[in-house]
Amino acid sequence: MTSFGSVFKVMSKDRFRTTSKVILAELAVIAVTLLWSVATRGVSSGEFFGVTASWSGPAFLAVFILMSVANEHVYTRDTYRLIPVGETKLYTTNLLSSFVMYLYFGIVQVVLYTITASIDADFIKGILDGITGPAYTNLEAGKIVIGLLLMGLAMVILGWTTISLVHLVVSATNNFLPNVSRRAINVVLYVVVIYLVVRVAAFMLHEVNNLGGIMSTGGQGQFILNIVGILVIAVIEAVINIFLLKKWVETIPN
């Protein structure tokens, strides 16, 4: 049996390269945007941080999508499925590899924020001072930031397990359905997929609402419970995914 470390290594090599490429592209786009400002009307205060923050969002999305593509790739390719490990190890290593790459990307973003925020320190302080609302102590602010981060990461994991679930269900059912009506079946499956995505989105919205509630009432326990809830759903999906891999999901033939 191949060790966890070896599987992790081969899965992460390409993903690390992909993530790094996204970072480079992000930096390039930020640089171009700033240069454009310099050339046309000069950089206004707060623009370093603003531009970085606004490009960071799409970059996060890009990494999320690229990592989920890499995830799904593994399940139907002999190159990965023939590695001498059980499905559970294959699945969890795969998920962990994407997650670690996502963390890597996130840390780089934090560094970028820190650098640009220090450049625009006065401007940001001005904005923060201008916000009227409940006054947070540093501890409370820290808790909120960490809470949001944890919630975000849990959402990412849930996103991947959901995408895998949809993909693997479609892949498994395709074996059992006649070739003729596959197109029709696929349409039905896609409808189910979209329904699921909508449900997850609704769930997310609900969580954001909760967050608002927490901010006003300070119900920490409820928030943590929600994160745990998300992770429990992710684990259930993961268990179903592993079961599907074991029993039904085939690779693309030679």
Binding site: M1, T2, S6, V7, K9, V10, D14, H73, V74, R77, D78, T79, Y80, L82, I83, P84, I252, N254
Partner: peptide, 25 residues
């Protein structure tokens, strides 16, 4: 004889060999 579908077309053969070396004891 799997057909190396898990690799991108721009992967060099020695990288593929490294992959095999790593995952197959």
């Amino acid at each position: 004889t799997e057909q190396l579908r898990g690799f991108k077309p721009n992967t060099r053969i020695d990288r593929v060999a490294n992959f095999y070396r790593t995952v197959y004891p």
